[in-house]
């Protein structure tokens, strides 16, 4: 089953002083059931606008969106009970306790105290449930917002920048929570501009820039977009090492105080043996891994991201 289907989404905003801003431009996206789906892009890429359109908060200028097979324009109420969501910063009444905030939401769908307790327990906030939300740290507010999404036991979670503004411990907490929720069979659609963070949790990703889809697919496929990066070798005499590798028919170049051998990572043993036979001993030997950030920058270099 496709959990999210977006076809030709376009959203324009009129500027107060005239003219228009295109936030999302002919975006197509399909999110399959299960796992964590990363929706990546820099600030201003149109991620939040897309999520707002999906949740019926913002009316698209053009395009078709569906959630859990239901058309967002007409049938959103029929599936909203199975969707948990956080849009941008977690918005709660600051003077109410965390529990009271959840009670107000829980009553809308007839959820009782048991569901509230379970949600608070799940995010580790049960002990602080009676404190006013204004006394919560940003991480606690984020966890409370996640607790709110869990009240309905959703099959789809849409989270907009859940790690935004969190300290490293908070990021780890949210990461672990997302992993465990994904492992339960729920589909997690998480937007983020922190690419390294998503790389650690997502199974599939879509990269957007300037409102357009740049690349989508399983993380490994997207990472492979830029091709193999080779193996990094460090040793005392770099030039001697490069010559030895060339004699062994291993193409190599010297870059940034190291040798980069243009072979697959599983050829490390051959590199080590070739150098040892030439009387050279490596101090470091590792695959030249590519991360989402690198892929993202390469994919978006023609889009003018960051201009």
């Amino acid at each position: 089953m496709t959990m999210i289907e977006i076809e030709g989404l376009r959203k324009e905003y009129r500027r107060v002083r005239g003219g228009r801003t295109i936030a999302v431009d002919r975006l197509d996206l399909s999110v399959p059931e299960g796992g964590v789906f990363g929706f990546l892009g820099p600030n201003g890429a149109g991620k939040t606008t897309t999520i707002r359109c999906l949740l019926g908060l913002v009316r698209p200028s053009a395009g078709r969106l569906s959630l859990l097979g239901a058309d967002v324009g007409h049938a959103l109420p029929s599936v909203i009970g199975r969707v948990g969501s956080i849009v941008e910063a977690p918005a709660m009444f600051p003077r109410f306790s965390g529990r009271r905030n959840l009670e107000i939401l829980a009553k809308i769908h007839g959820e009782g105290d048991a569901a509230i307790d379970a949600s608070l327990e799940r995010v580790g906030l049960r002990d602080r449930a009676k404190d006013p939300v204004r006394a919560y740290s940003l991480g606690m507010k984020q966890r409370l917002a996640i607790a709110a999404t869990l009240l309905r036991d959703p099959s789809l979670l849409i989270l907009d920048e859940p790690a935004n503004g969190l300290d490293p411990a908070g990021i780890v907490e949210v990461r672990e929570l997302l992993r465990s929720l994904g492992a339960e069979g729920r589909t997690i659609f998480v937007s983020s501009h922190i690419l390294s963070e998503v790389q650690q949790t997502a199974d599939r990703v879509a990269i957007v820039a300037k409102g357009r889809l740049i690349k989508a697919g399983p993380v490994n496929e997207v990472l492979a977009t830029t091709g193999s990066r080779g193996v990094i070798v460090k040793l005392g005499d770099l030039e001697a090492g490069r010559r030895a590798l060339a004699d062994g028919e291993i193409p190599a170049t010297i870059e940034a105080g190291a040798i980069r051998a243009d072979v697959a990572a599983d050829e490390s043993e051959r590199i080590s043996r070739t150098l040892a036979q030439a009387g050279l001993y490596v101090t470091e030997l590792r695959p030249d891994t590519v991360d989402l950030e690198t892929v993202f920058l390469e994919l978006t270099k023609d889009q003018g991201v960051g201009d």
Partner: peptide, 8 residues
């Protein structure tokens, strides 16, 4: 926004 994601 939070309310409308519960009751659209």
């Amino acid at each position: 926004g939070t309310l409308l994601t519960w009751e659209p």
